[in-house]
């Protein structure tokens, strides 16, 4: 069993297809959706974890791609711009899972762990410098 984090981008003509339903029904995968949205232009995003045997995950991903959905498995919707971050640390108490955290209390430098982030976006309005953003927001 493994878990993979995916960011799916749906173009206009595939938004109405029941992709997640088929991942569960046909490939027996466990789905955990963090965030999903359809824009006014009827394009969609979805951020989710899929859990199951590697073989089934690969088959499920092939199915998703075959439906015309674009997969970005390197990113969530959340973006942290290290070059903008000053490591003030105000985000820390607004990140419930410590994806944004300090590893070395001697330097107090902020680091971000993409794998822990649950895409809650709690940090975004709490960064005075605008280092946090999301494809779901302007």
């Amino acid at each position: 069993m493994e878990t993979r984090k995916l960011l799916l981008t749906f173009v206009k003509n595939v938004v109405e297809r029941p992709i997640v339903y088929n991942l569960v029904k046909e490939f027996d995968l466990v789905i955990n959706i963090y965030r999903a949205s359809i824009s006014e232009e009827e394009e969609g995003y979805m951020v989710l974890d899929i859990t199951g045997p590697t073989k089934m995950i690969d088959a499920g991903i092939n199915f998703i791609v075959s439906q015309g959905v674009t997969i970005d498995n390197a990113q969530k919707s959340f973006r942290w711009d290290e070059s903008v971050c000053t490591s003030c640390s105000n985000c820390l108490t607004h990140c419930p899972v410590n994806a944004l955290h300090i590893e070395d209390r001697k330097t107090m430098k902020i680091v971000f762990d993409q794998n822990i982030c649950i895409d809650c976006m709690g940090c975004i309005p709490n960064c005075p410098f605008g280092a946090c953003g999301s494809i779901f927001q302007d």
């Binding site: 490591s87 105000n90 820390l92 108490t93 330097t107 107090m108 430098k109």
Partner: peptide, 25 residues
Amino acid sequence: LKSGIVNILGRDIETASLSSYSMAL
């Protein structure tokens, strides 16, 4: 304060800074 947790009035409270110690360094 810089440890990340402060206990006052019997409660553990998470701390954060607005000025950057790493920039000061």
